[in-house]
Simulated assay, not measured.
Amino acid sequence: MAEPKWLEDMNKDEYLKEDFDASGKSIAGTTIDSIDKNDPEWLDKAAKKVNAAEGDDYVKLDSGLMTVNQLNWMLQNTIGELTFVDDNNQFLWYNRPKDPNYKMKAGRKPEQVGDTMKAIHPDVRDVIPNAKKVVHALRTKESGHDDVYMPVPTGNLKQLILHYYKRVEDDKGNYVGIYEWVQDLYPLVKYFCETTGQKLVIDPDAVSGATYRRNSDPDAATGASTKAKEVKEKHKEKTDATSSASEH
């Protein structure tokens, strides 16, 4: 993935100290002890221990009241893949796809819930060091940033994968974890371009190799869609025909 320059310049000695064994406790006091974090049945065992709400149980949120089922249904149908890791570097949740045949871009399995960050990342090349870099940057608000954008260059304009990491804070501004959103932006970009008259092209000067450029069509430059232009031209032809007929 292509990382921003400010992230590349981070102190390696500092971010490598991130505890991906999740051996500590969450600042929010929500870490569930006495259950092996990497246990494939962690979710069921932990939920039972804390008498977690489930099914038709209601959950009062800061701006709403929903059942656990309603929350699950909504999140299963939310665009993109969502993940939450707490400040103790423990993987606690992801929005499991409703479609069993859907292939996740950032693959997750139910039995991974509860795992440490070390367990869910393959120990190959720079995967774990790079993951530690992102976590540490958001934990410390490195260079004032509270989010990280990571595009995945593929050289294919019809596949625009983006990983977005957002620092999550409690009501007092304390770091309590990271929310990750992964999405192929192409379907959104395709619709946007089709309805605005713009197009996606290769830009040799761009770092990632792809950027937006307006269509050379002056109508596109004003934000008019291709369809809108066609309607305009047809209207003009009809007007000219009517005008010509009236002269004769």
Rank of each mutant, 00 (worst) to 15 (best):
D115M: 06
L43I: 04
R139A: 11
D147A: 12
T67C: 07
L82R: 08
N38R: 01
D217W: 05
E247R: 02
D123L: 00
E3I: 15
I161L: 15
D184S: 05
K25L: 13
K227H: 13
Q76C: 07
G55K: 08
K5P: 05
E247T: 02
V113Y: 04
Y212R: 07
C193V: 08
K232W: 03
D19P: 06
T154G: 08
T30D: 11
P218S: 02
T154M: 10
A46M: 02
K141V: 08
K236F: 14
A228H: 11
D146L: 06
S63L: 12
P100V: 03
E233I: 13
L7E: 02
H145P: 05
G155S: 10
D115I: 04
V127Y: 11
V85F: 09
V113N: 02
E247F: 00
S26K: 01
A228G: 11
P151N: 09
W181T: 12
D9W: 04
L160P: 09
N130S: 13
M1E: 11
G29R: 04
A53W: 02
S225Y: 03
K172W: 00
D87V: 09
P100H: 06
Q70V: 01
V189C: 06
A137N: 02
K199R: 12
I27A: 13
L200E: 01
A46R: 06
D33C: 03
D123V: 06
G177A: 10
D39Q: 06
K118I: 03
P129G: 07
F91Y: 14
L92F: 04
L185W: 12
G173D: 09
E169N: 14
K118A: 11
E8I: 09
D205W: 05
A52Y: 06
W181D: 09
G209K: 05
K5C: 01
G64S: 03
K98D: 14
V148D: 03
L16R: 11
K49G: 07
T116V: 03
K172F: 08
K37L: 14
V182D: 04
E54P: 00
D146R: 08
P218Y: 08
D146H: 09
F91G: 00
Y212A: 10
G173T: 01
S63F: 12
A106H: 13
P4Y: 03
S143L: 00
F20A: 06
L138G: 02
M10E: 10
G197I: 04
S216L: 12
Y94F: 15
T67E: 06
T140K: 13
N174Q: 12
K118T: 00
A220Y: 07
